[in-house]
Amino acid sequence: MTHEVRAVVALEKGAPVSVETVLVPDPGPGEALVQVQACGVCHTDLHYREGGISDEFPFLLGHEAAGVVEAVGEGVTDVAPGDFVVLNWRAVCGTCRACRKGEPWYCFATHNATQPMTLADGTPLSAALGIGAFAEKTLVAAGQCTKVDPTAPATAAGLLGCGVMAGFGAAVNTGGVGRGDSVAVIGCGGVGMAAVAGAKVAGASRIIAVDVDERKLKWAEQFGATDTVDSSRTDAVEAIRNLTGGFGADVVVDAVGRPETFKQAFYARDLAGTAVLVGVPTPGLTLHLPLLDVFGRGGALKSSWYGDCLPSRDFPALIDLYLQGRFDLGGFVSEVITLDEVEEAFARMHHGEVLRSVVAL
């Protein structure tokens, strides 16, 4: 059986997205059909539309999603019809060298559904991050479905599928923020804001938010920042050092992903501190650091893949923290919109007017 659904598609590079009829097949072996309830509007979707990820147009956009499993294919045992799930884009294989070492968050063989979703004329679609959830229904690998507490609203829960988990995990999983640590976060978009929130949950004593937008710095205070630095007016490295007794922060998260901001992270950390890169660099950027400084300062320089998360472990735990009132996941939802409003939401996101617009279906 094939399901006809409305979905947001980027038909060609740089063109406005459109709502199209999309055909979604029944799940085959190892696959799950999910009725999408909500999906966040992420910068990655805009990058797809602009051709910044690949040129495999047309794209079925959307990937920060939550919904209910409608059907599963042969061999699927971890989820069943009726389960409320958050979708993830790194379904681990369980057998690669990283998985065998007990580090599945580094899985080198993550997978997606094998059957394509198509336009009404049969043109295959490339699903954003292997999900494609700006749609009434989507087809994914069953391993991309993580069961969570169904009392959580889908509009909040779905945000764990990408940006919030990436930022939270960059601080907690990759950076290893613990009680009493000092933390600085450079770049306070959705990912950086989640790093601020993660540092608060982990018990950091000082959380310094750095950005050039005063509005975002005000938002960061709501998520737990104890101090803010407007780096358009103040040298960020000097300010972070001044706020940490002259030493620098124990953990500095770069949620921007540019050579300039990573250098700030490198020099703003304490000796033997940790710098974490979670902002995704654009192709062609090059980092230049004196090798003697890298040697002499010690510590760790880390990149964070998806917040080094394991969805089966982290998604339910963060939903529990949210339901307990300890993690303001709902605070990331700036507005709830329809499928027809995604293009306008891209513009608001690009101008920094929202943390997350969320499509409700």
Score class of each variant (00 low, 15 high):
Val164Ser: 07
Asp149Asn: 15
Gly192Tyr: 02
Ala157Phe: 10
Lys216Gln: 10
Thr244Ser: 00
Thr155Leu: 12
Asp250Pro: 01
Ile131Ala: 03
Thr228Val: 14
Lys216Arg: 15
Thr234Leu: 14
Arg206Ala: 14
Ala204Gly: 09
Ala225Pro: 01
Val177His: 08
Ala166Phe: 03
Ala202Asn: 11
Gly189Pro: 07
Lys218Asp: 14
Val164Thr: 09
Ala239Tyr: 02
Gly189Glu: 05
Thr228Pro: 03
Val185Met: 04
Gly224Ala: 05
Val191Lys: 03
Gly248Gln: 04
Val172Arg: 06
Ile186Asn: 01
Phe223Ser: 02
Cys145Leu: 08
Gly176Ser: 13
Gly132Met: 13
Gly169Ala: 12
Gly180Trp: 10
Ile186Leu: 13
Ile131Arg: 00
Asn173Thr: 05
Met165Tyr: 02
Ser231Cys: 15
Ser231Ala: 14
Gln144Val: 13
Val172Tyr: 07
Ser182Tyr: 03
Cys162Asp: 10
Arg241Ser: 08
Ala128Thr: 15
Ala225Ser: 05
Pro150Ser: 13
Ile208Asn: 01
Gly163Ser: 15
Gly158Gln: 09
Ala236Ser: 15
Asp213Met: 13
Val237Lys: 00
Ile208Thr: 01
Gly176Asn: 12
Thr174Asn: 07
Asp181Met: 15
Leu159Pro: 07
Ala195Ile: 07
Ala156Glu: 13
Leu159Trp: 06
Gly161His: 00
Val183Leu: 13
Lys137Arg: 15
